[in-house]
Design a protein around this nucleic acid. Structure first.
Lengths: 334, 334
DNA sequence: CTGAAAGCGCTAACAA
DNA sequence: TTGTTAGCGCTTTCAG
């Protein structure tokens, strides 16, 4: 490993001169700067980031904490994280994955502190012990959360409420009045927002709510969509249209309806939520509410860099707009 | 930040005693160990990992380099990485993402060296400049590759050749003889292996090859599958069955065939490759060749920890078995 | 413009 | 059993 000392030896200068030369300090003559840089290049010098962090108190690293179902396989997570990471990299930051599937009582705060990360992105808390998260968000670190589960400072998320309403409005505009809702979780904020979006729309238009008021789902999966639609069908009969809390649930809904012999969208229109790539490859291609993954990842990074550069630690939540993407799973009422 | 020195002050011992006590060094009496640990706990001590790496020359961190299409959104990548990360975490290692979507001429080797990572996992090289990768694999670091593009030492991948043959055999057993192949890339090893698996099977059974010999695909996508099937249909007419180089291509194939009015699997049987979750939600549910993502992630970790603990740097490639998963997209020849 | 020296927090000989 | 000391590689005053 090439160190400053080796370069200093070669160049017949002191270590501190080399340090300054390489970091572009102005108190070094251009001539020696050039000479030293040349030597550093020849030797293939790479600064030791650990030594640098030790003195600079910053590691140019952002920790990412997540406890999402399926981990990195979670499509929301991976999409947002990829964009976040891309931006981080452009600014010279690396991403350190600090998750935990096993160990109980992991102390994220300590872990982050230990690794000297400059900031932390928390992507959905899942079943993480709430104290572990609180300890993090209440520290003086730059912490951003993508799950609005908590108070909501320094958090970024899609406007699920308005999203579901767009979904409803789209169906309403197509002439549908018996609009059912295939719900997600009722126990987290996002799930509640989506439900409220639906219920408020229904009420505002004096329609009859068609949904499972009793049972919360958990994971927004295909099979939950399938089961919920099954329930709705027996409980309420065939609706004109179905608003779903996720694309996967929409796929489950469609599969159940098709199995029962109904045609999508001719007999029933279905709208998903997320705009996963599955929307494009489904038959029929799925109309959905697109979450702006890249926007979220980008805004998360922008907020992060802002927090890193200031001691502003109390930003109001950033709510990201969603967009209706009309494909083939919805059509006008016959 | 609590340091060893603070603890030492509190406990009226020297810093080195604290260091030893906390790391369980045997030369410290149980009594002082207990006392010091107690104080450390009260103070909320967290070791500074940077300082530790500086002296230990190991950071308990594994770098992950990737240049895969869609980045973390790539389903193969995220599945394998999640399992790798899970194992790493169980062993006290963190994952540092070291990718690059933008910067040209990034020097992964230097980056890894700079961050003092103990080992590197290279997940598919994509379009990364080959020298950057070579510099890494030829270094004395513990480097594992999941893309058999190169010579092949310290690499882990699915047995694509045998996988495609399983796919062919399955269709053959069902009575199909006009077996077409929807190809992936011809320019990387995996794509070549899959093609050879098909061609060798065809030859061995004296069948007629039905595939696009001229044009290599790139990304194993839905639309490539769609286009390739379109081509095969006009060029060769309707086959009995289609072997596809990926699940997404199979979805494209099926969509095209359905659009042309053919029923799957009644008119044509289709087999995918990968066993993505889309197989379960497709209609019909997709028969496919399952890659053992978790197995690959696990084996990659096992190899990594082996390399970390020895100076063994030349392990022969590990080829992971695949498995036929029969669902609804294949049936016997009518 | 350049160098000497101190120190970031930790570990590991070597003494005591 | 504990303490002293040196040093990991780097940055940064402060002198020269």
């Amino acid at each position: 490993m090439i160190t400053l000392e080796k370069i200093a030896d070669q160049a017949n200068v002191s270590v501190s001169t080399v340090s300054k030369a390489l970091s572009g300090h102005k108190a070094i003559s251009q001539k020696t700067k050039d000479r030293i840089r040349q030597i550093a290049d020849e030797l293939g010098y790479t600064p030791n980031a650990n030594a640098q962090s030790l003195v600079n108190k910053r590691a140019n690293t952002i920790g990412v904490v997540y406890e999402v179902e399926f981990g990195l396989r979670n499509l929301f997570f991976s999409a947002v994280l990829e964009e976040f990471r891309r931006n981080a990299q452009l600014n010279g930051y690396d991403i350190l994955l600090l998750s935990n599937n096993n160990e109980k009582n992991i102390d994220y705060f300590r872990h982050c502190q230990s690794k000297n990360v400059d900031g932390v992105l928390i992507v959905s808390i899942g079943s993480a012990p709430i104290e572990a998260i609180n300890k993090l968000t209440q520290s003086s670190m730059a912490v951003i959360t993508l799950d609005p589960l908590h108070s909501g400072l320094n958090t970024i998320y899609s406007d699920s409420y308005a999203g579901i309403q767009k979904s409803c409005q789209h169906l309403y505009d197509l002439g549908h009045r018996k609009i059912a809702y295939v719900n997600g979780s009722y126990t987290n904020l996002i799930g509640q927002q989506r439900l409220n979006g639906y219920l408020d729309f229904i009420k505002a238009h004096k329609l009859k709510p068609i949904y499972n008021a009793k049972q919360s789902n958990e994971s927004y999966t295909f099979s939950e969509g399938y089961q919920t639609m099954k329930y709705l069908l027996t409980e309420f009969g065939l609706p004109d249209a179905v608003v779903c809390a996720s694309d996967l649930m929409a796929m489950g809904t469609i599969t159940l309806l098709q199995k029962r012999g109904y045609k999508i969208p001719d007999d029933v229109s279905v709208v998903g939520f997320d705009n996963l790539s599955v929307c494009e490859i489904a038959t029929p291609r799925l109309t959905t509410i697109a979450q702006d993954y890249e926007g979220i990842g980008k805004k998360a990074w922008d907020l992060m860099i802002h927090m890193l550069n200031t001691d502003d630690r109390k930003k109001e939540p950033i709510i990201v707009d969603t967009q209706l993407v009309v494909r083939e799973s919805t059509t006008t009422r016959k």
